[in-house]
């Protein structure tokens, strides 16, 4: 039985001007060296970045490649050729939706991805674990990335301090 479970074999974001890697993550050993990975990424980029190629999906060297272009980057989700194309698309959509959710609907671009690298990588980690889809609901994923945790301690402390001092002053005043 070909595996449905290991949906994603690799994920990468490439710069859409030259095709250089922004970030990448490989989930099996098909490309076991950085060189092989980059060679594959170049091949994928060459095929998908052509202006008149049309978008979103293609088949290359026995891999299914689903992708989405943004102003200066392209985000790729790659799966085995027997993978369910739509499953792969769903993963890509989950990733993009979650980022959009986390970045409050700012335009996704290289700057956003890199400046918020912690969110980008955590999102990926919450969606895919060793190629297996962990979660698909972008609201749940955003939650797990840890964004809704109690606010930052530095801030808390200062507020707490402020509150305490007000309390104290009030207390003193009442005395």
């Amino acid at each position: 039985m070909s595996s449905f479970l290991y949906t994603v074999t690799s994920f990468f974001i490439l710069d859409s001007s030259k095709g250089e890697r922004v970030i990448a993550k490989y989930y099996n050993n098909d490309f076991d060296t950085l060189q092989k990975q980059k060679a594959f990424e170049k091949k994928v980029f060459d095929k998908t970045s052509k202006v008149n190629f049309g978008g979103e999906i293609t088949l290359l060297d026995n891999y299914l490649v689903v992708y989405k272009s943004f102003s200066n980057i392209i985000i790729y989700m790659v799966g085995d050729q027997n993978q369910n194309e739509i499953a792969l698309l769903y993963v890509l959509n989950s990733f993009i939706d979650t980022l959009q959710n986390l970045f409050e609907n700012s335009q996704i671009n290289k700057k956003l991805i890199l400046d918020g690298i912690n969110y980008t990588l955590l999102t990926l980690d919450e969606i895919i674990d060793g190629g297996i889809i962990m979660e698909s609901d972008s609201a749940v994923i955003a939650d797990r990335v840890g964004i809704k945790a109690p606010d930052n301690d530095d801030l808390d402390e200062s507020i707490n301090k402020a509150v305490t001092s007000v309390k104290e002053q009030l207390f003193n005043f009442l005395k």
Partner: peptide, 21 residues
Amino acid sequence: HPRKCSLVISQFLYLLSRGDS
């Protein structure tokens, strides 16, 4: 310092995903 540490971890994670060994 959580923010400082978070930034350093983010940098490590970025290096890893960029392909630095």
